[in-house]
Design a protein around this nucleic acid. Structure first.
Lengths: 366, 366
DNA sequence: CTGTTAGCGCATTCAC
DNA sequence: GTGAATGCGCTAACAG
């Protein structure tokens, strides 16, 4: 039989209420008693029953995370970082994947509330604002991540897609490129839209007009990437650099370039959006815009925890204005971009290097 | 105020116990009442309080998963598949990562039991058998995955590392190779040991002796892979094929081969252990031994759920003998292996292809 | 087939 | 500073 508070109280020769207070370090119990009770608890291996605690106090010490899948690097990075940080603060993570299905998403959100989670973090479809708002109004903190949710009253943490895309574009321009191809995501997605706008502004700020002949926008998959780059290569467009803003398409683009014998950066400068191991070990290592998944996750946890503690203080948790945070992108220069004027046929291959990029470098496994 | 069972009972004009039974489809309540109560519950948006249910019945509908990290493809694949399958059966997943620290692992296991999880799935360090066994003996099902836990009384699901490695080796032999290099993991790990044994037996069964000059075993990281392959290439060893059995090292091996201008499979046949997107899009696509992470996850969930239902039936959950299951590896032939006798300089590059490998193909993200 | 009663383990009034 | 009593929401005896 597992030890309960009653057991502890009995062994310590005090009442359950005092035992309860002592274990939770209440200031209304003498230091001596506190020490004694804690000692007894450890001795008999007492562990608080979280279900009972949740039922009584309304705090489950559980936080829900809802996202599409764990395959995408950004997603599983966020999941891992969120879990680790929550753990430090004594919270456990309930993980739920939706496969992008808004109906499934809604179901999972409800299940999470059934379990009385103390907070919900959503990388959402954007189609469940009502559910999310009702959760929020029922007193459970919510944070939207990466994708904004229209009409959501909860704070949102977004990546700096537009600025990041602009940064990528201007980087290529600064190297001397003026004919810069673009392979991106669909206009119907936040990132597809934002990054394209960044591409445009990056060009325009340097007096360059967008030439649609070098632009391909499509779904998030390798096949699209392969098709898009094949088309761009088959066209007389004078392209000297490529901005691959569609993460999944990169899996299609790079192999095609390799197969076509196009050397980077000699024949084409390439910059990709969202870092991953593949890009670090590709030959040459690919210059990227890092979205800062780790930082996004950290900020997200801070926002959830802040809301949780606010709720505790003010019994009615002052509902603040929904605020949007941006985590800026950063450029990681590697070896896939060069000035178009400096094309040398004799250049030796870049050295094999392994930078230390903590959130993405593969780690030991077994 | 959230609706409770009492609310439902009141609206339906019956007692709470009948309401409770009706909602749980107990056979001891009339179909009419059942229908009525369920209707009322939906109407007023009743949601069962899982904390209360857990406290009373001992079933939390929560399952814990403990693993190293989510970066490794096998790990996040397992996490995702486990979560999705559990969800179908009405269970939520509490995810915990340990970074390989046995102390952290123990802490997390305790936290999981605090939350009253109905089961624990562990890709463990192997150093917490006592904790795991005490959890098991307290009536909570446990399943060990991928890594066996010495002295564990719980069932274990393992990958078929030895047979898989043997399969890889014999495949290369069948193509005509006799000088097959090996880059693997440390002897101190299950997979490092098993795969090496498979390599040996694959050779021996074909009358080939292991030549240590072509063997490198080291830590799970890209740097080791790069170093190992450099050494193998710098040695006069007659190597015509390479078996890369250290998953993380692959990130170091492939770039070095590319940088050294070694064409696959013309100059060297290469087969890797554990599939991932990188290997599918590399030029040429790399032949791999797939560990079957998805199948491992599926079997694991089945085993956990079976234990859970057994516990329910027999009040004392007949403790069966701990059994070990193996999920066999499978070979996915792509384009990085060829017969050493058929070396052609004029061979055209293999076509760009995207196979459908569901558990690993990158999916749409936003 | 349905209602009444009790209590899971804990935190929290309220007394003292 | 401590103890006694109450009930969170629900399920499970026990009656009928």
């Amino acid at each position: 039989m597992a030890a309960t508070l009653k057991t502890v109280a009995a062994k310590a020769g005090i009442s359950v209420s005092t035992a309860s207070r002592a274990l939770r370090s209440s200031p209304r119990v003498s230091a001596a008693t506190q020490k004694h009770v804690k000692r007894v608890a450890v001795d008999i291996g007492y562990r608080p029953n979280q279900a009972a605690r949740a039922l009584r106090s309304g705090e489950s010490r559980l936080i829900g995370l809802v996202l599409n899948n764990l395959l995408n690097v950004s997603f599983h990075t966020i999941a891992e970082v969120v879990q680790q940080r929550l753990s430090v603060h004594g919270y456990q993570l309930i993980l739920s994947t939706t496969s992008g299905d808004a109906g499934v998403e809604r179901e999972l959100l409800m299940k999470l509330t059934d379990h009385g989670v103390d907070g919900v973090i959503v990388i959402g479809s954007g189609k469940n604002s009502k559910t999310l708002n009702s959760i929020l109004q029922s007193g459970v903190p919510v944070v939207n991540v990466i994708r904004s949710s229209p009409d959501s009253l909860a704070p949102t943490v977004l990546a700096g897609d537009r600025d990041g895309a602009s940064m990528a574009t201007e980087y290529l321009v600064s190297l001397g490129h003026r004919r810069i191809g673009y392979v991106g995501g669909l206009e119907t997605t936040d990132s597809g839209r934002e990054r394209y706008l960044g591409y445009i502004s990056g060009l325009n700020r340097n007096g360059i007009e967008v030439d649609e002949i070098m632009v391909r926008r499509g779904p998030f998959d390798p096949e699209f990437g392969a098709k898009a780059i094949e088309e761009l290569l088959a066209t007389e467009n004078g392209m000297t650099a490529l901005f691959a803003a569609n993460h999944e398409a990169v899996f299609g683009i790079l192999p095609v370039l390799a197969a076509r014998g196009i050397s980077l950066p000699q024949n084409l400068s390439v910059i990709c959006y969202e870092d991953m191991p593949l890009l670090q070990t590709w030959q040459p290592a690919i210059t990227v815009i890092d979205t800062g998944a780790t930082e996004i996750a950290e900020l997200t946890v801070d926002l959830i925890l802040k809301q949780v503690s606010n709720l505790k203080k003010s019994s009615e948790g002052k509902r603040k204005q929904a605020r949007t945070y941006r985590v800026g992108a950063s450029l990681i220069a590697r070896h896939s971009c060069a000035s178009p004027s400096k094309l040398k046929e004799t250049e030796s291959p870049s050295p094999i290097m392994f930078e230390h990029v903590p959130p993405i470098t593969p780690r030991a496994v077994r």
